[in-house]
């Protein structure tokens, strides 16, 4: 019978010992050279836990220089990797997950009462013994914000070219195909036939892209709260780009685009629901385009219609409402243009709102990001390091 000589897990203290000379190798192997696929299928945020277990050992032996040096090289190497991969969503998401997890670990094991309420007795035994790393937490928090901003920039760069064709031009409702205002060519089909022209994207392509972002962030173990903030920011971008185009293009200010847009926004709300993201406040960012879609569809003739529009369009400014009404283009000879007196009626009713004279939305506006503390249930002493990581110079203690 095989004799088990391996130490039992209860004998480990959840620390990793390394020689000071191996610090650069650790940063290179675990941060610089690692690909997210190398650690997929292991504990999410494995690099963060390994780094923290190394910090714990340096703290345990009371070596302040070793702690400082490891944290500094960790932070600098993460920054280097992000710079090298500044257009790579996967790498940016991976390091956002790991940096914020390392930040959570420094809080969870800080020994401060406020961060210990969800800890197991074993986790409390694993708290740092000698050093207070509050200032390094601030650095990691600042770094997390930088990585978050890079993640948003990369994701926006990918979806920006898709938004107008997916939200306003592609025909996701088959029965509406070809229903365009008088005098306008079918824009999306003309784009399709133009080999040198910009590519046109369907709503399904946009939603598929959002799904890929979401899956990647989940695979990397990014906190659900942070994922929600990313999605909300991307939905803001989709709303702003769509509304701004609607406000500048007469050919899309029609009943049929209104119908299309309402359908598209409902599909996006459905995507949020299907992915448990409805609480992320992302849905609320679509309110302006939902109201614009309704404005394109409602009757615009009587005084009652004017009153209904004013009650309906609370997320649009007076300028935006008036602009859409002015641009509104009838579908056929049976539909009338919006009359000047109707628009004046609306303007009079909205006067008391004192809306800012703002027509276009700021597509670059960013919501303030928050990284709420999220302790982990993981027991450090149970963590295994796969041999494929080539970290055999780390010794479990």
């Amino acid at each position: 019978r095989q004799v088990t000589v391996q130490r039992k897990e209860k004998d480990f203290e959840g620390m990793l010992e390394y020689n000071k000379e191996d610090e650069a190798l650790l940063a290179k192997t675990l941060i610089n050279d690692i690909r997210p696929s190398t650690v997929s299928g292991t504990v999410p945020c494995l690099p963060a836990y390994i780094l923290f277990m190394c910090i714990r050992h340096a703290d345990y032996i009371n070596d302040d220089q070793k702690v400082e040096s490891l944290l500094t090289s960790t932070i600098n190497t993460i920054k280097k990797v992000l710079k090298k991969n500044n257009d790579d969503f996967e790498m940016t998401s991976f390091w956002l997950a790991n940096t914020s997890r390392l930040l959570h670990c420094l809080k969870q094991y800080s020994g401060e009462e406020g961060f210990m309420t969800h800890n197991t007795p074993k986790q409390n035994e694993h708290c740092l013994k000698n050093f207070d790393l509050t200032e390094y937490r601030q650095v990691l928090s600042d770094l997390s914000i930088q990585i978050y901003q890079q993640l948003i920039k990369v994701a926006e760069g990918i979806i920006q070219p898709m938004i107008v064709s997916a939200m306003l031009e592609s025909e996701s409702i088959p029965s509406l195909a070809g229903v365009k205002p008088m005098g306008y060519r079918n824009r999306s089909s003309s784009l399709d036939t133009d080999a040198d022209g910009p590519t046109s994207y369907t709503l399904q392509a946009l939603i598929k892209q959002l799904g890929q972002f979401h899956n990647t962030m989940q695979d990397h173990g990014l906190d659900p709260e942070i994922i929600g903030q990313v999605v909300r920011q991307l939905f803001h971008c989709i709303n702003a780009v769509t509304l701004n185009n609607l406000l500048l293009r007469k050919d899309v200010c029609s009943w049929s685009t209104g119908m299309q847009l309402r359908y598209n926004t409902s599909q996006m709300e459905e995507w949020l629901r299907a992915n448990n993201l409805y609480q992320s406040k992302a849905a609320a960012t679509l309110e302006p385009i939902i109201q614009a879609a309704q404005l394109l569809q409602v009757k615009k003739k009587t005084s009652q219609d004017a009153e209904a529009i004013c009650t309906l369009c609370t997320a649009l400014t007076t300028q935006q409402i008036v602009k859409i009404l002015n641009l509104y283009t009838p579908l056929n000879e049976f539909e009338e243009r919006v009359t000047v007196s109707f628009i004046r009626n609306i303007q009079n009713r909205l006067q008391e709102r004192n809306d800012p004279p703002q027509l276009l939305l700021d597509t670059k506006y960013t919501f303030p990001v928050l990284f709420p503390y999220s302790p982990s249930a993981l027991s450090l002493e149970t963590l295994h390091i796969p041999a494929s990581l080539n970290l055999d110079f780390l010794v479990r203690v």
Binding site: L71, N76, K129, N130, F131, D132, Y136, Q138, V139, L143
Partner: peptide, 30 residues
């Protein structure tokens, strides 16, 4: 829970300061 003695605060440079130090180190190395 064992009574914990006060931990020593490790002073950290800011992220920008760390970057500056890192850049000057890179410049020094050939």
């Amino acid at each position: 829970r064992p009574p914990s003695r006060p931990r020593i605060l490790l002073k950290a440079p800011t992220l920008a300061e760390m970057e500056e130090m890192n850049i000057s180190e890179e410049e020094e190395s050939p």
